[in-house]
Design a protein around this nucleic acid. Structure first.
Length: 258
DNA sequence: AACGACGTCAACCGCTTGCGG
DNA sequence: CCCGCAAGCGGTTGACGTCGT
């Protein structure tokens, strides 16, 4: 199922991601944001190719978007989700990203795969059914159900944006959503900081800081205190001082800090 | 048990789009 | 307006799993 690990001519690793790489990428993005995918691995691992992340930016982006990003659901499609995908495919064609936008937690890649492996056949069968019996009552009923479920899902998903969390955490989850919606501003600030850092006279210091990030061992929640972590995050110069909520939420959501 | 055919899905590739200089 | 770069998108690949013979 997974590709074997190999390298391209630039020494960039290809193939399946190891757990360690996942952890590093996740930790890096949670800490610094993804202000520039192409430069991410450069800043993150270029100087420390042997112990860092020797992946191209595209690969990093894909891994994050399809696998590591919070709230990404995989597999176990519900009947309603499948119905919606089929309906959307009817309307939109192979616009996987547009479909993903309407199916929170699902990625375009995942929907595409699910379509090709499960739903395409069903769609063909339905097509045949339609051909043989345009006015078939069963299909009419089916379409009603789809529209009905779509409306219901739209409502539920609006609420479900805050999903599978315990009620005591809902406030912070909402805050995270707010923080996520300001990703652009945050990433822009990050980029500014990074660009400044690279071009400034203190380049060595910043590069070393990032290098340290990749080389230092992961600290699990029980190895540090929340206050220490909070202080570490807020004190870190790469983080926007304007996004304490973001920091707070990373902690409450992931419970760790690298 | 062995083997081939088929299914699944993570990851890659190349093209398109959008944006800033 | 043009050019270059980065991100996004959709098609395709390929390795592993599963099933049938």
């Amino acid at each position: 199922m997974v590709r074997t690990i190999c390298s391209d001519k630039n020494g960039m690793k290809k193939g399946s991601w190891s757990e360690e790489e996942d952890n590093k990428l996740k930790a890096y993005i949670l800490r610094y944001g993804h202000w520039n995918w192409r430069k991410l691995p450069k800043y993150a691992g270029w100087r420390i190719r042997l112990s860092g992340l020797s992946r191209c930016g595209k690969s990093c982006r894909l891994r994050w978007m399809n696998y590591l990003k919070p709230k990404v659901k995989r597999g176990n499609y519900s009947q309603e989700e499948e119905n919606i995908i089929m309906k959307l495919h009817d309307e939109l064609g192979n616009k996987w990203s547009a479909m993903a936008a309407k199916l929170p937690g699902r990625t375009d890649n995942d929907i595409k795969n699910h379509w090709h492996t499960h739903l395409k056949k069903r769609a063909k069968q339905n097509g045949k059914l339609k051909e043989t019996s345009e006015s078939s009552q069963s299909i009419g009923t089916c379409q009603f159900e789809l529209e009905d479920s779509q409306q219901r899902d739209d409502q539920e998903w609006a609420l479900d944006s805050v999903v599978d969390i315990d009620p005591s955490q809902q406030t912070s989850e909402s805050s995270l959503l707010q923080a996520e919606s300001s990703d652009y501003a945050f990433n822009h600030a990050m980029k500014q900081n990074m660009d400044d850092s690279i071009t400034s006279s203190s380049e060595t210091y910043h590069a070393d800081t990032i290098e340290t990030f990749w080389n230092q061992p992961f600290l699990l929640e029980n190895e540090t205190t929340t206050n220490d972590v909070r202080a570490s995050i807020v004190d870190h110069e790469f983080l926007s001082p304007n996004s304490p909520i973001y920091c707070e939420e990373l902690l409450s959501r992931y419970g760790f800090y690298y």
